[in-house]
Design a protein around this nucleic acid. Structure first.
Lengths: 252, 252
DNA sequence: TGTAATTTGTTCGTATGTATA
DNA sequence: CTATACATACGAACAAATTAC
């Protein structure tokens, strides 16, 4: 009404960006599905009417986003890739690297993600998914004697199963990403911990409790257990200044 | 123990990737801060001992990740950029575009994010932040007469203030991203809604309630209000099949 | 199995428009 | 206003890798 219509600042659009847009658009519309192939660089050079360097810049950008993958000498052309959380993981990793976020915030975020995942899993999990959790828990138990590496893999599998049972892909993917970043920051500390075996046994008991709550369809308890367990595990690695932030999620 | 050590599959590392790694590494170590400049393409071509095209491919990848920005004719060279959630937003947008996640999951995720943001804001918000929320709410009230565009901007400002008060950058950024994607999917429906004015007034009342709960340091209430408000707003746009997923977050 | 054809990875040289000093 | 240095974009060429016959 009283607001004068204003123009937007323009940034020169480079040739390779137009190519990226066109290809992204086709993928989004489903006209180009994972597994299918893009034309060869020389073919695209002709279709887009640009030089090969320009085509290659576009391909490098698409590749860094995980949308395509090109391999030398492959006459079938660059491959359209299925979705992968790799790009998301890189973004979060960068936030951590440039000190935009610290370990405390990561753990806090993981607490709220897993808390929600457990709540939803308790409500939604199918019999098959409960069985899968059983298996994952058994794998954890068996892995205690085989070292932290193996135990960590089984632990990840358990959390993955629960997250998938939440029936929310965003929760699933974000949990995976944040868990990966947290482990990347402190897994070496755990791996060299003197009371490593006790940590694993304690973890196993906590996971058994979670599974029990999920199976009993007790979402509130499963949710609370997630927060408590994560706090018990990671609070020691978080600076004292950030610890009250984590406790805020416990006293609900 | 019994596990035979296995080799990892190798992917040929291309020249431009090594360049990207070196530059990313310097930025992560703080040796290259936002605002600083990279050498010119010709200079890098000499330092990395590669061709111009290779340097350019690396720069395009870094640019698509939001890490640097180069402009034609600028003799100071490509600029190191501060962190921006643009890359994160793009990843999430892609997940939505390829139908990996639907509106229901997005809204559910937003419910748990804002629920947590409100909970933490009630505990952590400073007097200045409470004042900022007051201002944002006043702006919303004033914007009701100026149309949905303006109201939406004020609404976003309010949520941003609350998210920032949570003192968790991940929550802040993810809320911003998911909110943007959701609005991108349905803002045109709201903009053409016949009972638009009533929606805005209702929204304003809900936000006033949230602010009251935050100011009273009543985290549980602020948290519950976030979930209820979002459900009341967006459930109508979500398919009936997905709606029970949202309700699961209400009955806690 | 080996060979030929095709493709990508990379380099080099050049022309053009643009921003800074 | 001019000179300089820059980024954008083009095109040709060679080596290495992959597929297919």
């Amino acid at each position: 009404m009283g607001v004068p219509p204003r123009f937007e600042p323009v940034r020169p659009v480079r040739a390779y960006e137009r190519i990226v847009e066109q290809i992204e658009d086709r993928v989004y519309r489903g006209l180009l599905a994972p597994g299918e192939r893009l034309p060869s660089e020389r073919e695209m050079m002709a279709q887009f009417a640009v030089s090969r360097s320009t085509v290659r810049e576009a391909l490098r950008v698409l590749e860094s986003g995980g949308l395509v993958q090109s391999r030398p000498g492959d006459p079938r052309g660059p491959e359209i890739m299925p979705f992968s959380p790799a790009a998301l993981r890189k973004s979060v990793t960068r936030m951590v690297q440039v000190d935009e976020v610290g370990l405390g915030e990561l753990v806090q975020f993981r607490m709220l993600l897993e808390s929600s995942a457990n709540l939803l899993a308790a409500r939604m999990a199918s019999a098959e998914e409960l069985d899968a959790m059983d298996e994952a828990l058994a794998a954890m138990t068996a892995a205690i004697d085989r070292g932290y590496e193996e135990f960590s893999r089984a632990d990840v599998a358990f959390h993955d199963t629960v997250a998938r049972a939440s029936r929310n892909t965003l929760i699933e993917v974000c949990s995976d990403v944040v868990r990966g970043v947290v482990l990347g920051l402190i897994s070496h500390k755990i791996a060299h911990s003197p009371d490593q075996r006790e940590l694993m046994e304690q973890s196993m008991r906590h996971h058994a409790e979670v599974l029990d709550a999920v199976r009993s369809r007790d979402g509130a308890r499963a949710s609370r257990l997630a927060r408590e367990t994560l706090y018990a595990y990671y609070a020691g690695y978080v600076s004292e200044a950030e610890r009250p932030m984590l406790r805020a999620l416990l006293e609900e």
